[in-house]
Every structure is written in C-alpha cells, then in structure tokens.
Design a protein around this nucleic acid. Structure first.
Lengths: 329, 329
DNA sequence: GCGCCATCAGCAATCGTTTGCAAGTCAAAT
DNA sequence: ATTTGACTTGCAAACGATTGCTGATGGCGC
C-alpha cells in the first residue's frame, strides 16, 4: 500500500479517481469520493508529498534562515530568535507550510544564493540582517520570494518586516531622561543594521550636549562576550547612570556585571533593554525594556512571503515598539 | 534552464550523462564530467531536489518535533530547547539533511502518527517526552526511525537519548547537603518523565529523615507560572534553605521570587538549577546548576536516527551530567 | 425510440531525476 | 583481420502524483 495505484486497485477505480477523491479537486460523484476516502483511512494511506510537490512544481516548505554573521555557533542563544522561530512555526503550520530551518555561518558569500537556488523551499524568511547586507541585496535583486526580519532601508531590493528601531531607541532615551539620568551609555553590536538604528534613535532623542557625552560600547551578542565587555567597561572606572542595551540579553549581562562591581541597579544605574523576552520579567531586578511584538512580526513575515509567492505585490512592514517599565530603571 | 534536459541539450549530451556528471555516481569520462559541471556552474543550474527525492525514495529531511504537552504556545521559551534546536540544525546540515521543524500542540492523540505517516521526513527526532508517553509508545512500536530526547525507560519501544536525570538529581542533593542545607525543596513539573527522574534522584540521595521533610512544589515550565508558584510558596511563609529546581528557568524564577520576599541568595538559601543554559552564567547571582551536554546530545540524536534509517541496529544513549558551582549556592 | 446533454471516471502525458541495460567506440591481443 | 574487453554514453523505464481530454453512461424531452 505505497501509492495511489495500489489504493486504486483495491477500490476498483482508476488512479485519477483516487487522486480526485483525496485532493477534493475536480468533479467526482460524492459516493465514490466517500468510498475512496473511507478506504484510504482504513489502510492508513497518505499521498506522497514529494511526488505531489514535483507534479505541482512547489515544495510546500518555507526556509527560515538564521545568519550567524558575528557570533559563530551562538546566535540562537538569544531567546528572541527562538521565540520568533516558534511563532513562525505556528504561523506556517496554520497555512499548511512546512518550516525548513537552517542556521548558516555565512563564511561563503553565496550561502543565500545556494540555498535559494537549491529549490528546497518555495520562499525564504531571513531572521536578522546580521552583517550580510550585501548578500541580501544581491539575492533580493533577482529572487522575489524573500522576506527579511530587520531594519527597513530606504530602497532595499527586498521586503523587510521589523520593529521601528529608531522609535524604540527614542523611547529608551526619553525614559532615561525622565528618570533624571544624564551620564548615558549605549551597549550594542555595531555591525547589524537593527542595532545601528536603535543607537541612532537613542542618540537623536537626546539633547545635543548629552549626545556627545554618551558612550557607545561595542558588544557581541553572546551572553559571555557581552558580560565580559560590560565587566571590562566598569572595571575601567566608567560609571554611567543610565544604560540602553541593544537587546535584553545584553541588558541582563550589564546588570550582572554591574553587580560584580558593586553598582546597584536601579538605584545607581538604570538599565533599559530591547526585545522583552520572557526572561526579562524574571530577571533580578526585572528588566525595563522596549518590547517588540514578535508574534505580530512572525505573522507579517509569513503573510508577506506567501503573498509574494502568490504573485501579489506587497510592501515592507514596520511595527511599533512599546516601552515596558520594570524594576531595572 | 529548468531541468537536466535543458542542460543536456546545451552540453550536447544525454540526460543520463548530465545526471552522472552532477551526482558523481556511475562512471563517466573525466573530461565530459568536467565540461558538464562547468556548464552547470555557468548557468547556475541545480538539481531539483523534489524530483531527486522522489526518484530516490527519500525526503532528505528529518523532522524535529517539539510537543507542547503542558504549556500551550510557550515551550520554546526555554532556551534549552533553542540550544538543542541549534545544535540539531548544525549536526543535520553537516550530514546533508534538512531540518523540518514542527511545534505540536498534542491535543489530538494522533499528532505523531499523522506526522510520521505524512512521509514528509525520513525520520523523526522528538524533543522531550512531555506528557505524551502513551503516544510515543504507540508510534514507537511500529515506526522505527524515531529518537526521543528525554528519560530512558526500562523497555520503551523507541530509542532515547538523554541525560542521566537520576544521577543529576543526586548531584544536586549532595551539593546542597555539603553546603549544610537541611530544609530542602524541589520545584518541578511532575508530568514529564525527565523531571520526575530528577526528583527521584534528588530524593534518593538524601538521608531518610530529610527525604520525608523535603517539599515537592509542582510547577509549570513557563517563566511566569514558575515565578508565580515560587512567589506564592514564599508568601505562604515557607523558608527552605536549599532548593533544587528542575530547570534553570525555574531556578531563575525562584531566585527572582526570593528577592521579592527578601530572601537572600545564596546567604539564606541555595538554589541549584538544571541544564546550564547560557543565561545561567549571567543570572544574578550566577546559577549553580547541573549541566547537560546539549551538543553531545544533539550529536547522538542525529547519529541514532540516521543509523536507524540506514537499517543498522543501535541502542539508546545516556549522558552524564556535571555539577557546575556558581554563586547561587 | 431517438437524440441530446450532463455527469462521471479513465487514459495517458507530465513534473525532473536516477539507473539497469545495451550499444557504440577504440585499442590491444590474437 | 578478427576477437576481446574496457570505457563511455544513450535509451527508456521507473518514482507517485495531477489533470486536460475523451469516452461511456444514463436520464430526459420530444
């Protein structure tokens, strides 16, 4: 009982009839349809997806790519990514698509091109621009079914979905100012466009004199390296009273490093993160942060890529961030 | 330039020749092979994976299933899962397999059977038994290419890979005893076999009189709910001086809840977690925990499922846990 | 009783590969 | 000159589904 032909033999009908019965396409006598379906159930028969896809010229799967531009092997450690992944899985499943996941170490310049041209998926969702802007642009010019989570650009040749990072940075800035903080610092990765936009929004929202005095501390995205960087920063005697971290993980690392240097949070220093991962709530102290609506983001990503596949034309989406005040500021 | 036939025409050879040139299988004049390959590169031609898979009777993909037995929609929030996922992705990619990810809400009893029989993947890795023991057993009896991350059972009809949870629990117990702790408590989910085993190992390693006095606090796996449970527990006036948490996330929640109730960690209470997720290191205080070797686990999972697919016979694997001492105890 | 039309189901081509078999070529051995 | 064998390559049949076209069947009206 491997193929449609076997079932056809058992049912005493032709393969076309079985196909029509099972897919519901075409016209068929309701009685025959029922009979074939019952038989299929009885024998536990399922259509072969590969064959179906071959015939239909599609794959029924969407690729989700996580470029690990900066941190070899550890990007997924940020719960932001897994939350996004989870929502994408749900969203795609709901629409009948499989999710093909691939972590890529973009050491070869054509990692994306290779993936796209392998034809394993009908479309691609890239989570994060990382430092792969050039690659994305190159592929985006010729390949249409791609949507990227990250910063939207003036006229990027590919679709993006992302939080308004500039606005998010501004939220953080205004919050720290309201708290009376004046010795400010920004901790973040400076390769990735998302983070650059957060930094820009933060700086732009500050009065001019503070803008100049605000320190920018470059950081990598793994917990260890951001902890190390923060620790070093404090060890060098720096004592900001307000810190904006480009992600919650960075924010939590800063809090931990501050504790080691006897800096009380929030009394002596306010920390604001970005993302609002679930753990932000159970951090000690709970982390004030700029929330991204990941569920909505996932929904939009899937919407856009499927619409592109369907040939509709669509445009990039920008989501509004919200400031969540908690104990760390 | 869609198919092998087009390329064959351009190269002036037959389709079989192109196939042999590109796949490297069969015997072919080295010069022709080179020529065809060069042409393929020039035109950016790639074999169609669906067709290839159909012909070869495989899919080239392994399904990774995350059953969300207890906590609808939030299981992936535990960084343990994403770390595992990341390692699986790497391991599978290295061996030329795609990773088809699926989060399942096991509300229908036949979620696993359906997936397996859809034929979308050559094998299945299930991460965590959750409360789906019965379903796993049922499918394991007839479907061979399945490996489950979790607790190994006496004679389960399916392969498992997992940490020796009983030993892990014992490590935690001995550590707390060494620290002089005597008023003990265990926080953990009691549905999932992994957690039950941790609890059992913990209790068995205690002297009899403590075993009876140790409290078992049932908990769910999301950060919020474990925080709430811990908070409630402390609010009721309970003041253990040593706590073993069934996961790092639970451990961190306990620390956070303790802080709210003015319980100093580690001075007044030691907390030991389980997993050693990356964040354990940057928690405040850094979390003492029982480390699971996730990378090794992923490697074994992939090994086993591929060996099963190849028809070899193999047996379940048990990994050794290690206690990592940090600031919380 | 005949023709017409609607409905239903089968035939066979097709999607893009792989691969057993056989045919062709060419050089060496007889 | 013929046989032998090694090497290369092509032919065509799969893999398991979908679907346009066509033919069969039966009901109905005249």
């Amino acid at each position: 009982m491997r193929s449609i032909a076997d079932l056809a033999r058992i049912a005493g009908v032709s393969v076309s009839t079985v196909s029509r019965a099972l897919t519901g396409k075409g016209t068929l006598n309701e009685k025959t349809r029922e009979r074939v379906r019952a038989l299929a159930d009885e024998y536990g028969f399922r259509l072969n997806v590969s064959a179906q896809n071959l015939r239909l010229g599609r794959t029924g799967a969407i690729g989700v790519l996580l470029p690990l531009g900066h941190e070899r092997g550890q990007h997924l450690s940020d719960p932001f990514f897994s939350a996004m992944l989870g929502h994408l899985a749900d969203e795609l499943a709901e629409r009948g698509y499989d999710l093909l996941m691939s972590r890529v170490l973009p050491d070869r310049a054509n990692w994306l091109d290779d993936f796209v041209r392998s034809g394993r998926t009908d479309g691609v969702i890239v989570i994060g621009q990382s430092n792969q802007g050039a690659v994305l642009e190159a592929v985006g010019k010729t390949y249409r079914n791609m949507v990227v989570w990250g910063a939207s650009g003036a006229d990027l040749p590919y679709l993006t979905v992302g939080t308004d990072n500039v606005a998010g940075g501004a939220l953080a800035a205004r919050h720290l100012l309201e708290r009376g903080r004046r010795r400010l610092a920004f901790f973040g990765n400076i390769d990735a466009p998302e983070f650059v936009a957060r930094e820009r929004g933060f700086l732009e929202a500050l009065p001019e004199e503070l803008r100049a005095s605000t320190e920018i501390v470059p950081i990598h995205l793994t917990p260890e390296s951001s902890f190390a960087a923060a620790s070093e920063y404090f060890a060098a005697g720096n004592r900001p009273d307000g810190v904006f971290a480009a992600s919650d993980i960075i924010g939590m690392s800063i809090v931990a490093a501050a504790a080691e240097h006897g800096i009380a949070v929030p009394e002596a220093m306010s920390v604001v993160g970005f993302d609002d991962i679930l753990l932000a709530r159970i951090a000690t102290p709970p982390l004030t942060t700029v929330r991204q609506d990941i569920a909505e983001g996932a929904r939009r990503l899937v919407d856009l890529v499927l619409q592109r596949i369907a040939g509709e034309d669509v445009s990039s989406a920008l989501l509004d961030p919200v400031l969540i005040e908690r104990g760390s500021s």
